[in-house]
């Protein structure tokens, strides 16, 4: 099996996805090509129903496209083997992440690898500021807390690719910025981040690229200044940057996996 090497670099070419059959066929994605690189954040934006989520689900290996190619830099991957090749290296989260029956701690356990020490769960709870909620039923959490549980799961798994579908929808500015801060940890650690959002102005602190999808095509691709920082003084919010700055000191990934790819990626 061709595993994805880190830092991750994937090229998706001519992705096509349609739904329905016969006369009811509707093309969601028409010939989309894009790339994904470790340590960078890309925002996919567009109107509701334009195919943002479909694209993310395809990239996450959860949905098979009608056609398209993927290249890892070394190999061309068959779509049927794509998910297996991604293995533990990709994580996809819904707008409202699904919480399994059980406590927050139990939900984090599902992300744990056999080789990992269980102490990592305590560190993840601390990182996501969920220590006080560790024994709470996960299904009882608010939307923002669910997002943090999902990010804590990602923090444990240290994926090479993190795909988030509208992670800050329905969040107020404070919680959105807080989430951006958590996400910056992943970028700093070399994870390739793809975020779908209907609002093109969100995540501007952390994004390197922004692509607009219209009628199933990439109608705009914008390369932005890669700052990977969350203490942007020009933010249109009135929030005190101390919140952002304090969170900037969050712990990076818990074991040497991160140092492998972050160090290479920063070269």
């Amino acid at each position: 099996m061709n595993k994805i090497s880190r830092p991750v670099r994937l090229e998706y070419t001519n992705i096509v996805k349609t739904y329905g059959k016969g006369k009811n066929t509707k093309a969601i994605l028409n010939d989309i090509s894009l790339s994904l690189k470790g340590g960078e954040c890309t925002l996919i934006t567009g109107k509701n129903g334009c195919g943002k989520s479909t694209l993310l689900r395809i990239m996450g290996g959860l949905l098979k496209p009608d056609s398209g190619l993927i290249n890892t830099g070394l190999h061309n991957l068959n779509w049927n083997k794509y998910r297996k090749a991604l293995g533990n290296d990709v994580m996809y989260f819904y707008q409202e992440p699904y919480m399994f029956d059980g406590t927050v701690r139990q939900n984090l356990t599902y992300a744990l690898d056999k080789k990992q020490n269980k102490d990592i769960i305590d560190n993840a709870l601390k990182w996501a500021e969920l220590e006080h909620r560790s024994d709470t039923q996960a299904k009882c959490l608010s939307g923002g807390e669910r997002q943090r549980v999902a990010l804590a799961q990602a923090w444990i798994k240290q994926p090479a690719v993190l795909l988030l579908d509208e992670p800050t929808a329905n969040m107020d500015t404070e919680h959105r910025l807080r989430t951006e801060t958590f996400l910056s940890t992943f970028i700093d650690s070399g994870t390739a981040l793809y975020i779908a959002s209907h609002d093109p102005n969100h995540f501007h602190r952390i994004m390197n690229h922004r692509l607009l999808i219209e009628d199933g095509y990439v109608s705009e691709f914008e390369e932005l200044k890669a700052t990977n920082t969350v203490n942007d003084q020009n933010d249109d919010t009135l929030l005190n940057d101390s919140l952002l700055q304090s969170n900037k000191n969050v712990t990076l990934f818990p074991n040497n996996k991160s140092t492998n790819f972050s160090s290479q990626d920063n070269k």
Partner: peptide, 25 residues
């Protein structure tokens, strides 16, 4: 929900573990 299976797949190291996560649910 379908989300449960997708989430299990994204969390688990292999399809068997994902199956057991959903089965526990």
């Amino acid at each position: 929900e379908k989300r449960a299976w997708d989430t299990a797949k994204t969390l688990a190291a292999n399809p068997f573990k994902a199956f057991f996560i959903v089965m526990r649910e």
